[in-house]
């Protein structure tokens, strides 16, 4: 049963991604990307990473995509006015993306999964993740707060009108 969930979620994410790339209207692109994010959050859930699933929804879809939406509306881009690229560029783009896809697949072929030892379920729960985060990775955690501070200051400074 579980694999069907997996297939459905994968189909949704791939379809939404493709639609995002090829949508004419930027607002439509944003919406499709949100759909992709939701399906990925679903993947996180079935992979037992509950905390990350919630964080994905809150941070990515809730904050980041909203920000994108704000900017698009601010710049009045709801009408699609970009001229298309010449055909040769499109073909070249598809070819290179396809090449990248194949090459990466080939690179990953060799990876072998070590079977899961018993008793390590539930590592993705909030409690367990929190334990790891605040013990081993305390320093990066605090550093990331500095990162946010600088990002905030930077973006305020950058977008200020003189």
């Amino acid at each position: 049963m579980l694999e069907y969930v997996f297939y459905i979620l994968s189909a949704i994410s791939i379809a939404c991604a493709l639609l995002m790339v090829f949508a004419k209207n930027p607002i439509h692109s944003v919406l499709f990307l949100i759909g992709t994010f939701f399906s990925i959050a679903g993947h996180f859930v079935i992979l037992n990473a509950h905390f990350l699933a919630i964080v994905q929804i809150i941070v990515y879809t809730g904050a980041i995509m909203v920000l994108f939406l704000y900017v698009i509306m601010l710049l009045n881009l709801n009408k699609e006015s970009e001229s298309t690229k010449p055909n040769i560029v499109k073909v070249a783009a598809v070819v290179s993306a396809g090449l990248l896809f194949l090459v990466m697949l080939a690179s990953f072929k060799e990876s072998i999964a070590i079977p899961l030892p018993e008793g390590t379920d539930g590592i993705g729960s909030v409690k367990n993740l929190g334990k790891v985060l605040f013990s081993e990775y305390l320093l990066p955690f605090e550093a990331s707060s500095v990162l946010f501070l600088s990002a905030m200051a930077g973006s305020v400074l950058l977008a200020k009108k003189k």
Binding site: A17, T36, A93, S96, A97, L100, F101, M104, F108
Partner: peptide, 9 residues
């Protein structure tokens, strides 16, 4: 990998 390639595209 598929999602990544779509992003590159």
């Amino acid at each position: 990998v598929t999602l990544f390639s779509i992003g590159v595209l």
